[in-house]
């Protein structure tokens, strides 16, 4: 247990005068300020799968933006070469009307991503407001609001969508309405759960003793602390919306020709599966890839946000 003193070299009496504490030193903090989101970003970066998900999504988004703009063909040009296999001219081949599948895939990406993201944003707005009001006010308000949510989620979802798409004309807008009419209930439930756990935390009580209004509590305390869960839910809502859109389009309830979404393309591709399998393969492949990438990002975010890993 005892160490030898002479390893310390010469110890002069001068070194043994009392100099007292250096309190400033003791209260000093490391230079670097570590905010919560910086740490989340650090942990997210460690997750290779999630980072590659981000890359994949970025590439898909860039291609969706630029390919239809700069390609020599347009998504509706009929080029007179039907069901041609992928070649130098037409990287993904052509379809039965002689349209370039490569351009149509990226044009379809625009539509699919647009539908997915818009639906997710609408879910976000309605869900967050609904959930936080319901959770914060509690009591009767909560009962009524959550029963509405229960009823909405009890109605067979597909039935609502099909009725809606039949009543309204097929197109982009009805598709988005169809996706969001019941889509937000999931977000509302999650936000309400978060709010219920946050609203009794001491910092919320402290704000209330300072005289904070409910609106102040929602904006300053509840949403910033629920943001993690909201973000994760949203990244997982987008692929669900994309998938649902594809699924509905596949059933023939999607956007109208000649507009393409991945779903309608896959649906059309089914017909020519024997002669031109690439017409099904490419849109199907990109649906899967996008959904996979969003899920990877969502899972990565959830892990990065998990407070249990936080030290």
């Amino acid at each position: 247990m005892e160490k030898r003193h002479d390893t310390y070299g010469e110890l002069t009496p001068e070194m043994f005068r009392v100099v007292g504490p250096r309190l400033a030193e003791s209260d000093q903090m490391p230079k670097k300020t570590v905010s919560f989101w910086k740490e989340v970003w650090y942990r997210f970066r460690q997750n290779k799968l999630a980072v590659s998900g981000v890359f994949i999504l970025a590439i898909i988004a860039l291609l969706a933006i630029f390919v239809p703009e700069f390609s020599q063909y347009s998504y509706r040009d009929q080029l007179g070469v039907y069901n041609e296999a992928p070649s130098k001219e037409h990287w993904f081949g052509t379809d039965d009307l002689g349209r370039d599948v490569f351009v149509r895939v990226w044009y379809g990406a625009r539509i699919s991503l647009f539908i997915g993201i818009t639906a997710a944003i609408i879910d976000l707005i309605i869900g967050v407001l609904w959930g936080s009001i319901s959770g914060l006010f509690g009591g009767r308000v909560d009962d009524i609001m959550m029963r509405i949510v229960d009823i909405l989620s009890a109605i067979p979802y597909l039935l609502v969508v099909i009725i809606l798409l039949v009543v309204m004309e097929q197109g982009l807008l009805p598709m988005i309405i169809a996706l969001s009419i019941t889509g937000w209930v999931n977000m509302a439930r999650i936000v309400r759960g978060e709010v219920l756990s946050i609203k009794n935390r001491e910092f919320v009580l402290a704000a209330r003793t300072l005289g904070a209004s409910n609106w102040h509590l929602i904006v300053r305390h509840i949403i910033p602390n629920a943001l993690g869960a909201i973000l994760v839910t949203m990244t997982l809502t987008i692929p669900t919306a994309i998938f649902t859109e594809a699924f509905l389009s596949f059933l023939g309830l999607g956007v109208n020709q000649p507009i393409a979404s991945w779903g309608t393309m896959a649906s059309e591709g089914m017909g020519g599966l024997r002669v031109a399998p690439w017409r099904l393969f490419f849109p199907a492949f990109f649906i899967s890839l996008t959904i996979f990438a969003f899920n990877a990002v969502g899972d990565g975010l959830r892990d990065a946000l998990d407070p249990k890993l936080r030290k």
Binding site: M15, F16, V18, G20, P21, R22, L23
Partner: peptide
């Protein structure tokens, strides 16, 4: 740094 009897050493 917190010791009121801290020595130089």
């Amino acid at each position: 740094p917190r010791n009121q009897y801290a020595l130089a050493i």
